[in-house]
Simulated assay, not measured.
Amino acid sequence: MKIARRGQVSLEFMLVFGIMLILLLYSVNSITFQQGSTSTETLKMQILLEEKSLANAIAGTIAQVYAQGPGAKSTTYVKVTYLAEPDYLQKASGSAKVSVGASNSFVFVGVGDQLRTADVGNEEKNTVLTEMPYTSVGKGIVFPDGLPAKSVRIIVEWDPSRDEDWNARVVGSYLEITININPGG
């Protein structure tokens, strides 16, 4: 009689354990993973954080050159992951287009066809702004398929003989963004 009872307890334990395991796997799969990759909401947040990091690096380098005055030049290096992956950008925002530039006294980095700095209706923020120390004439660069490299070299210089300008090119394994500032020029 005791043997039958031990067998029944083991069977009940395995049944309850199996149901709990199935529920655990289902909840982890439905919350964390979507078609074998990171969930869309997590991906959107990671892209926004990377946008903010790049905007901060550009604005910081501009501020450093601005503080040093005419003739100054500075270089900063930034690593990106998601902004250089068109598939991730497409999944998160429906577009792989990345825009980098300056407008008024802000540096912006945005993903998508229409840049939004705030949540509007059902559309979520897809652009970040970082303040810089002077008012720009409004320049920028558009990358239609995400950034072409995961390593970014930001070169900012203040050459008073040239107008404000933003250029980008791939040099080796780096995306080189070259910015000439000319406050008041």
Rank of each mutant, 00 (worst) to 15 (best):
I3Q: 11
R6Y: 15
L11H: 03
M14N: 04
V16H: 02
F17N: 12
F17H: 08
F17V: 08
M20L: 15
I22K: 12
L23E: 00
L24R: 07
Y26H: 07
N29R: 15
F33E: 07
G36L: 07
S37Q: 12
T38R: 08
K44N: 08
K44W: 10
Q46S: 09
Q46Y: 07
I47W: 05
K52N: 14
L54H: 05
A57V: 00
I58G: 11
I58T: 12
A59S: 10
Q64A: 13
Q64R: 13
Y66P: 02
Y66L: 00
Q68E: 13
G69D: 09
G69W: 03
P70D: 03
G71K: 09
S74P: 10
S74Q: 11
T76P: 02
K79A: 13
V80P: 11
V80K: 02
T81H: 12
T81N: 13
T81R: 13
Y82S: 14
L83Y: 03
L83F: 02
A84W: 05
A84L: 02
A84K: 00
P86M: 07
Y88R: 09
Y88E: 10
Y88A: 14
K91W: 05
K91F: 06
A92C: 01
S93K: 11
S93T: 08
K97D: 12
S103A: 10
N104M: 09
S105I: 00
F106S: 04
V109K: 05
V109Q: 02
D113N: 09
Q114N: 09
Q114I: 13
L115F: 09
R116P: 05
D119P: 00
N122G: 04
V128D: 10
L129S: 02
L129T: 09
E131R: 13
M132T: 00
P133I: 01
Y134G: 03
T135S: 14
S136Q: 06
V137W: 04
D145R: 10
D145Y: 15
L147A: 02
L147K: 01
P148L: 06
K150R: 12
V152F: 03
I154E: 00
I155N: 14
I155D: 13
I155P: 09
V156K: 04
E157N: 08
E157Y: 08
S161Q: 07
R162P: 07
D163Q: 12
D165N: 15
D165L: 15
R169T: 15
R169S: 15
R169F: 10
V170K: 10
S173P: 10
Y174S: 01
Y174Q: 11
I177Q: 00
I177V: 09
T178E: 11
N180E: 06
N182F: 04
N182L: 01
P183Y: 03
G184H: 08
G185M: 01
